[in-house]
Nucleic acid binder design. Structure first.
Lengths: 200, 200
DNA sequence: CCTACCGATCGGTAGG
DNA sequence: CCTACCGATCGGTAGG
């Protein structure tokens, strides 16, 4: 039952935000009375923490794939982006939830996110720098700033995917596809002028 | 007094969101009793609408500058980006507010935003396409998708600027500067491999 | 522009 | 896991 609650709460927090989600609404979505939700998660805050923790956990579980993608194939960046895109495409609520955490002000949650992000920032920035020394990556890239901007772009692009597809018009599915394609292209071209792999 | 209310409400809606902002909090910030706020803006919803309208109005007032920047100088894209960056740097709450409108779900607000965006999308995409025909812009760019992704990146980058600067570390001001610099570089390089202007 | 007040709903508790 | 209930606060109104 904890899982059902977590699932519905995740959906609601992602779409309506923390303040916009009532414990009663979560209870209704699951089909329980309000105190039953409070039985499993003692406060609304604890429920939100659990939801955010779950997204971070799911991300950690995706890590092996990403690291694998990062060390194989002709175009490693392309592979990594593919995994990240898959992670958010799978469940766009993840991106919406993370966007809220960043924008909703709670400094404590931000700090928790930063703790998760900082090691990644260092790792990825080192990769970029390495590429620069090898001449594969443009010299004018600011490695740390690039990584941060790419993370922002990835998360917010998926968080806004629905609206963006609406603005683009046409069939929603193909609109989403065009947007993801251009997103990936932009990120790659911002790092190096032409694909890594060269001619196959 | 309407102005004071609008100002404080804008600050609060941007930082805490619609559901997270109470009419009482707005009243306290201005130094009025709650019913006095309701006197000037008959409902909380009307107050939010006024706040969003104001941001859109300020953007329209910035338009002449942007259009001017778009038709002068060696690197027109650079000039336009400079104006947009200035618009959001001036008041980062604008970006945070727009992010919320997109993510907070109210379909009606989205539609209003889309109405504002659509003509721009067409105009900017046409510019990109024109550049492609002249060979100034890479052929693999998807003009409409590119414009949308750039708008998303610009808005969310400023909305997350504070957190991003925290992750980057060091002096907050110079961190912000690095991030904006890289943001602009990414956008430019995603369109054409080298600066438009050539050697001066 | 304020005081006084409204019904509804908030997060959470008591007790079983 | 539920019913019954708590004080606090919500958006908004009445009346001046």
């Amino acid at each position: 039952m904890k899982e059902r609650i977590l699932e519905e709460a995740g959906r609601l927090f992602a779409t309506r935000g923390y303040a916009g989600t009532t414990v009663q609404a979560v209870a209704d979505a699951v089909g329980l009375a309000k105190p039953s939700v409070i039985y499993w998660y003692p406060t609304k805050k604890a429920l939100q923490d659990a939801v955010v923790d779950q997204v971070l956990l799911e991300w950690r579980q995706t890590l092996p794939r990403v690291l694998d993608a990062a060390s194989s194939g002709a175009d490693r960046l392309d592979n990594v982006l593919g995994e990240v895109v898959w992670f958010f495409s799978q469940a766009p609520d993840r991106a919406r939830l993370l966007t809220r955490v960043v924008v909703d002000d709670p400094t404590e949650l931000r700090d928790r996110l930063q703790g998760h992000l900082r090691p990644w920032l260092a790792l990825l920035a080192a990769y970029v720098r390495e590429g620069q020394q090898a001449g594969r990556v443009r010299a004018d890239v600011d490695p740390e700033a690039w990584v941060i901007e790419v993370v922002i772009l990835l998360i917010s692009s998926f968080a806004a995917a629905e609206v963006a597809a609406g603005v683009l018009g046409g069939d929603p599915d193909s609109a989403r596809e065009r947007l993801v394609g251009e997103l990936v292209r932009m990120i790659k071209r911002s790092l190096h002028p032409e694909p890594e792999g060269g001619t196959p």
